[in-house]
Every structure is written in structure tokens, then in C-alpha cells.
């Protein structure tokens, strides 16, 4: 496509008469127009290639734009109620958003982004431009940790550790992957999906254990004033235990699994 194409033949100038048009006898012959020197096209690709590629890039950039637009608005959907304050119940009290009756207050949907991405999102998925680009948004939040202890059937501790932990996970990117693992497992979208069970099963498999105990921890942030008052951002009071899970192995150890067909 990058090969130089021959220049297109010069077009007939607008207004020039056709050669076979009948000439009026009294008409004076027009002076011949000076022939313009050929100017090479600054674009090596021919018009057809340029139009085709233009359509493709326009489509691509369009999807590039609508994907984060739709993804960011997914979490901004609010009930169809008068702006400016929550609707009131029969007693005049504000109705909390979670108690809105969807028949009375259906969701206000971002109609346009939804319509645009209805089919185009498959293109975005396929080439991985299905991103929201919402870094540290809408607000930077607290961090979470998972502490684990793995035991065998006799109750002996086989392993213990923490995700994330700078001493256990190095280099920094490896630490960051563990941090993301914990944060994304705490995402409200993942709630109730049994993610902790999946993490527990993996830890049992890794350490060849029979039981695992997971402790979920929230690491709170301090205000500037709390830090000025001597608080440490890694002080013990900043950690809050938010859940404990004991899990027994459900998956058979890898050594006991039947070999998959076609594999040695």
C-alpha cells in the first residue's frame, strides 16, 4: 500500500465544453487555457486506499471514544426522579435511593452511549479498547489486604502470608499484581461471586494444604491532621478486620486428578 501510485489523469476543467458540442457560427474561439504543470500528490496512497483507510480509522476512533463513555456511565445510573433532591414518601420523608421502587422510579439510562455500544462493544472487546480509563476515580480509595494461613488435615500450619506484602512479593510489579488481585476481588461488581473461595482454592493447591483461613483487612487512610498529630499511615489502628473465611479443600490435589485427554 505504501508504493507510489501514478498520478491520476488531469480532470477536465469545470465549464469546458465537450469537443463534440455544436459550435455556433458567430462564437469566437476561446483561447486555449494554459496547461497546469503536474503537481505530484503529497500522499503516496491512491484515493481509493485513502478513502478506505479513512473509513476504518474513523470507525476505530469512534469506538475508541464511545467505549469509555459508556463504561464510565454504567456506575452513574440514577433513578428517574426530579433533580435537586431525593423524592419524598407519603409522610414527606426523603426516600433512600436503595428503596426506590423501580416501577415508580425506573433508572435514568444513558440512552445514547448504550445504543452506540450495543453492537460496537464486541469490536472494543475483541481488540481490547473496552476500557474506562478511570484511574484513581471517582475518588482515591482505601486499600485492602488478605492474610492467609494454610493447614493440613492434622492442623499443622503449612504456610502463611499476606497479599500484598512488599517483603513477600518482589519485584514491585509482582507486588502490584497481588495488590490488584485483592482490590479487584473487593470490587462491588465482584461481590457474591465467590472470589475469595477461588483464592483459597489456589492457595491450598499451591501449598498442598487441606484447610485455609483467610482474613480480609481494610487499611484505612489518615487525614492530613491525623498525620500531623503523629499518626502513622501504617499504624496498627489503621487496619480493620472486615471478615474471616475458613475454607476446606474441594478440588482434588493435582497429583490425584485424572490426566486430561491428549496430554501426557
Amino acid at each position: 500500500m505504501s508504493k507510489q501510485r501514478p498520478d491520476p489523469p488531469p480532470q477536465q476543467p469545470a465549464g469546458e465544453k465537450k469537443p463534440n458540442a455544436p459550435q455556433a457560427p458567430e462564437a469566437k474561439p476561446k483561447p486555449a487555457k494554459p496547461v497546469k504543470p503536474k503537481v505530484p500528490s503529497p500522499w503516496p496512497w491512491g484515493p481509493f486506499a485513502r478513502v478506505l483507510v479513512s473509513l476504518l480509522v474513523a470507525f476505530h476512533v469512534f469506538v475508541l471514544f464511545i467505549s469509555p463513555w459508556e463504561i464510565q456511565l454504567r456506575q452513574s445510573i440514577v433513578p428517574m426522579a426530579e433533580p435537586g433532591g431525593p423524592p419524598l414518601d407519603a409522610q414527606g420523608r426523603p426516600i433512600p435511593p436503595q428503596q426506590f421502587d423501580p416501577r415508580t422510579y425506573p433508572a435514568q439510562l444513558p440512552v445514547l452511549p448504550i445504543a452506540l455500544t450495543k453492537y460496537l462493544h464486541h469490536y472494543a472487546n475483541l481488540i481490547y479498547i473496552n476500557n474506562g480509563y478511570d484511574f484513581f476515580s471517582p475518588d482515591p480509595g482505601v486499600s485492602h489486604q488478605i492474610k492467609y494461613e494454610v493447614f493440613n488435615n492434622a492442623g499443622e500450619k503449612l504456610a502463611e502470608g499476606q497479599f500484598p506484602n512488599r517483603r513477600e512479593q518482589w519485584p514491585r510489579l509482582f507486588y502490584h499484581r497481588h495488590m490488584m488481585l485483592v482490590e479487584q476481588s473487593r470490587d462491588p461488581m465482584a461481590a457474591g461471586q465467590g472470589w475469595e473461595t477461588a483464592i483459597a482454592e489456589r492457595l491450598l493447591e499451591k501449598h498442598d494444604g487441606d484447610r485455609v483461613r483467610l482474613v480480609m483487612i481494610r487499611h484505612h487512610l489518615l487525614t492530613p491532621q491525623q498525620v500531623k498529630d503523629g499518626g502513622r499511615i501504617d499504624g496498627p489502628t489503621t487496619y480493620e478486620e472486615i471478615g474471616v473465611m475458613n475454607h476446606n479443600r474441594t478440588r482434588p490435589p493435582a497429583t490425584e486428578q485424572a490426566p486430561a485427554g491428549g496430554t501426557p
Partner: peptide, 25 residues
């Protein structure tokens, strides 16, 4: 879109978000 997402957050609009990101241990 990164900017638009930030504009939904109070801390970014008020000017304190960098603290909450930077003080995250």
C-alpha cells in the same frame, strides 16, 4: 475520559485527592 471520571469525585474537585492517593501505604 480519565479527567471526566475524576470530575465525578468530590476529592478531585475539592483539591484533596492527591493526599488520599499519596498517603495510601
Amino acid at each position: 475520559f480519565s479527567a471526566l471520571a475524576k470530575l465525578e469525585g468530590n476529592t478531585w474537585r475539592l483539591g484533596t485527592a492527591v493526599w488520599w492517593a499519596a498517603s495510601n501505604y
